[in-house]
């Protein structure tokens, strides 16, 4: 079982994730070239980059400054979500063994804390969804499911590292959760990890290049 989830299934997950995102992104762009021609006469690199940058930097936009709780929770969540799996020593050793590549890796103690920060941030996001009427009214069950999908690899990873259950079983579950998250990305709004850049480039140009006004 372990051999299967940590072998062929990893390949499947990465192929679906990367291939799916390429197909999706290229598909959307070619569709927009056919149907949203109006976008392209004012697409501008400078305005696009500024529009993206302002929303990638903590408190870079007015909306973020006015909502510090969401901003902090959101940034903690996203930074940990990307950094922990990429720079975890254990992951890098596996990649090194399998493909001979590895990235810089962080001390386990830091990864451990970041995992807890991510879970705390997720709890803040969930509380927001329940407590704030303006968030509650737009929240759907999918929002909770996707949060769970994104958190599951971290919770199970934490359990595996601290050997809270049978190490082998929980490791298998952890790998499955990670694969589930990767596979989900192209088919759900988790695809915003790429589409964020397209969407922001569009609105930045729409307001900036056409009218000289800002969207942050």
């Amino acid at each position: 079982m372990y051999e299967f989830v940590s072998g062929p299934l990893v390949w499947v997950a990465f192929i679906v994730f990367i291939g799916g995102m390429i197909i999706k992104t290229v598909g959307l762009i070619s569709l927009s070239k056919k149907k949203d021609k109006v976008v392209y006469n004012h697409l501008n690199l400078d305005w696009s980059m500024r529009s993206i940058f302002r929303w990638l930097v903590p408190f870079g936009s007015r909306g973020m400054r006015e909502n510090p709780v969401l901003t902090i929770a959101g940034f903690v969540f996203h930074i940990c979500l990307l950094a922990v799996p990429l720079f975890l020593l254990g992951h890098n050793i596996l990649w090194d063994e399998a493909w001979g590549i590895s990235l810089w890796s962080m001390p386990d103690r830091i990864a451990d804390w970041m995992t807890l920060f991510l879970i705390a941030a997720a709890i803040v996001l969930i509380i927001r969804r329940i407590v704030l009427p303006e968030v509650k009214i737009v929240t759907t069950s999918t929002d909770y499911i996707l949060l769970a999908i994104a958190c599951a690899p971290f919770i199970t990873g934490y359990m595996a590292y601290h050997q809270w259950m049978d190490a082998k079983t929980i490791t298998i579950i952890h790998i499955l959760c990670g694969e589930l998250m990767l596979i989900s990305i192209p088919f759900t709004k988790l695809s915003h990890m790429i589409l964020f850049f397209l969407s922001r480039a569009h609105i930045g140009s729409e307001f900036g290049e056409r009218r000289g006004t800002v969207t942050w």
């Binding site: 959307l28 949203d36 976008v39 909306g63 969401l70 303006e134 737009v138 759907t140 709004k189 969407s199």
Partner: peptide
């Protein structure tokens, strides 16, 4: 069908339901 170009498709899909737009609206 005509409307659903790249933009609309993307927008309808990625909205994270975060609620940040609420305070921007004078109707709200």
């Amino acid at each position: 069908d005509l409307l659903k170009g790249g933009r609309f498709k993307m927008w309808l899909e990625i909205c994270a339901h975060c609620g940040l737009c609420a305070d921007s609206c004078f109707f709200y």
